[in-house]
């Protein structure tokens, strides 16, 4: 069913589509620090379009906004970085060493305070972009490993390896701090 959207409804559209748009941008960005800028420029584009056209009739508002975000991402990065990402996808799949975490370990054992949680997130952001995305999808969107693998177009084993390896690192680096 088609929906008519207009400038008056912009705030509502923003509220309704924000989470999915954020998830799309995070999953498709090459640099986690660019996410807010990409998100803002996506909705600015929508706002300007609504200002110009007064109203737009759409089959799917969320898909339309994701389409804007897709173009914003592709244009944001220079040609070198776009091609660099193509090669990087191939490298990631070769990482196949199985990792295990202790049965009684939870990330909440580490992030006992907000300050430590902030440090942990900063640590995760410094890892490769794929690990950051996995953590975002696992802890923020609360997706299962299979769902994360589908979202990022990688194997479930790869998701598990990156998640568990990083959790082990967090346990070693931060568990003492939280005690």
């Amino acid at each position: 069913m088609s929906t008519q959207i207009s400038l008056e409804k912009f705030r509502q559209i923003y509220d309704d589509t924000y989470n999915e748009t954020l998830k799309y941008i995070i999953c498709n960005t090459s640099n986690i620090d660019d996410v807010n800028e990409l998100l803002q420029s996506t909705y600015v584009e929508l706002y300007i379009m609504l200002e110009k056209k007064k109203s737009i009739l759409l089959d799917n508002v969320q898909s339309y906004i994701i389409g804007i975000a897709k173009n914003k991402i592709k244009r944001h990065y220079s040609i070198i970085k776009r091609f660099w990402n193509v090669h990087k996808v191939v490298d990631v799949e070769s990482d196949s060493v199985e990792q295990e975490i202790p049965d009684n370990f939870s990330i909440e054992d580490v992030v006992v305070t907000k300050e430590i949680a902030q440090k942990v997130w900063e640590y995760i952001k410094k890892k490769d972009i794929l690990t950051t995305k996995i953590f975002y999808l696992y802890y923020y969107n609360e997706l299962k490993l299979s769902q994360i693998a589908a979202e990022l177009n990688i194997t479930e084993q790869n998701v598990k390896n990156k998640l568990y390896r990083t959790l082990n690192e967090l346990r070693k680096n931060f568990l003492k701090e939280g005690d």
Binding site: V111, A117, V120, W121, Y140
Partner: peptide, 15 residues
């Protein structure tokens, strides 16, 4: 159990 990581991420990409 409070998901503090979620709070931090929420703050980073504050709506």
């Amino acid at each position: 159990m409070i998901n503090r990581i979620k709070e931090v991420i929420d703050n980073e990409y504050n709506k």
